[in-house]
Structure formats: C-alpha cells, structure tokens
Design a protein around this nucleic acid. Structure first.
Lengths: 142, 142
DNA sequence: GTTCATGCAAATCGTTTGCACAATG
DNA sequence: CATTGTGCAAACGATTTGCATGAAC
C-alpha cells in the first residue's frame, strides 16, 4: 500500500492557486505561466503544469476540457455552469441556479457512483458574432 | 471570399461515419482505425483523423472532449446526456429526458448565441469500483 | 482535367518526465 | 538529512500536415 505523498508549500504553487482563484477567465496553463513569469523570472512551464496537476488532484482546482486543443482551469469549485464560445474558446460563468435534483435522478438510472456533474452551453459569443458579419451557419470558412 | 469546399464520397469516410453511428461506446480515433484496418488494410491514421474532423465540421458527428488525453466521438446527434467514469474514461449514454427549458433560460441571461448544451455526470463505473476494493476517496494512489 | 482523398512520413504542440541542484520540514 | 520542488531540456503522444499518387466528378 502506497504511503500518502506529503506536499510541501512553495511560492510557485501558492501563487498559481491564488491566481486561478482570483480570475474568472478560465485560463490555460500557458496564461498562468505568462502571468507568473513576471514574479518568477526563471519559472518554467513544466513547474506550472506539475503544480496545476497536483492542485487538480487535490481537488483545489477544476480542469475544463473545453474541446479546444488545450485545457483550461477554474479555481471556483462550487458547481456552476459555463457558456463556451465555439469560435474563440472563451468560457464564461453562468448565473443560473444549479439543478440539485439532477444527480439524484441519474443515480436512479445508472450504477455509476455519481460524484458531480457539469453543464456546458455552446454557442457564439457577441464578439465573434460581430466578426462574422453577414455570417451564415458556417463558421470557420476556409 | 472562399468558395465552399465540396466533399466527395469515399469508402473510408462513409464507413467511419457508419461505424460511429452504429456503436454506443463513444470510441477514440484510434479505435476506429483499428476496426477499419480490417476492411482497408492500407488505411492510415491520418485518414481517420482527417475524415472525423470533416464529419464533425459538417455536423455529422459529435466530439466529446472527456477530460482524457484523447477525444472521443459520438454518432448520435440527438442531445443526450453522458456519464463518464473518471477512472477508466468509459462513457455511457444516459436515458433521462433532456431539459428543454434550460437553453431558453440561458438565453435570457447571456448574450451568447446558444446553439446546444451538454451535460456530463462524472463518477466511477461499477467495474472500477470493484477494482478499488476497500477504496477510499483517493483513486490514483501513487 | 480539376479538385479532392489517400497513405506515408515528418512536423506540431500541449503536456509530461528525467535529471541535477535548491528548498522544505 | 530525507524528501519534495524547481528549472531545463528532452521525451511523449495525440493530432495535423506536406507531398506524390490515385479516385471522383
């Protein structure tokens, strides 16, 4: 049986968590890296990834695989819903009440142990809409 | 202004779509490749990715970025909900009614154009539960 | 015939990891 | 001082892409 790993504190890890808790833009790892490079000039991307991974594992951060090529992260652990722009990838928090009965319903029709659920709305954000002037149904024309 | 690209039919593309329409296991690109290699011995992974990408783009397939390292795909285009095993990545369709009022609610509190929504329940599947015998809260012990 | 699709291999890119050294408890 | 964290660079793995050839329209 494996002994529980004991994480120490490090300025880098603390700042990463703090940064992600104080923003609502659901940043990428690279964004975090760019921000903290100002404070830690020798910071490496590997350290950012390593720490984010640990923080997610410890349940202090949420990973959002939003369909893009890279993951995004959320320091807000309360269940809440997101709107995602299919064009630019922007993620915005939604202010609608979480349906508390949903998980209960699902528990009745599956033998999975349900831990949490996630709701994403997909669409196009206002900024991208205005860019796609007389836009039809086809974004990403070639 | 770019002219609309005209896609032709190819046996490979047709079979990829058919395959994904006739399974409910939400396969990876690699799974599709392995299946079709039997029919097309010279098939290449690149072709699978290229076609899946086109089919998703044309709205004939759904991409499911389920948090794992690789994407999964779904030939079922009707809105429906998924349960995802956080341990083995298995994705299972849920048979609960889709909340049709949700998108309407969201449209009222955001200026995104909402096209669709997605609901995922996360947890542990029965198989993984029995593997984690006297399991506590920590999967992926080290 | 022009355009699109294929197989193959090389390239890309987000993320992970091995290593030597510094920092934590 | 035993263990964990860091920076750096190399490794990894899923996906994409350039190219020459073959198929579709």
């Amino acid at each position: 049986m494996a002994r529980k790993k004991r994480y120490r504190t490090s300025p880098q890890r603390e700042r990463i968590l703090e940064l992600l808790r104080n923003t609502d833009i659901h940043p990428t790892a690279d964004w975090v890296y760019e921000q903290l490079k100002k404070e830690f000039p020798k910071l490496s991307l590997g350290t950012v990834y390593r720490n984010i991974r640990i923080l997610v594992q410890e349940g202090l951060l949420q990973r959002i695989p939003a369909g893009s090529t890279f993951d995004r992260f959320d320091g807000n652990l309360k269940t809440h819903y997101h709107v995602i722009c299919d064009q630019c990838g922007k993620i915005v928090d939604l202010d609608i009440p979480v349906d508390e009965t949903l998980e209960k319903k699902v528990r009745q029709c599956t033998d999975f142990t349900i831990l949490r659920h996630r709701v994403e709305f997909h669409g196009i954000c206002p900024e991208c809409q205005s860019k796609t002037k007389k836009g039809g149904l086809k974004w990403q024309e070639d």
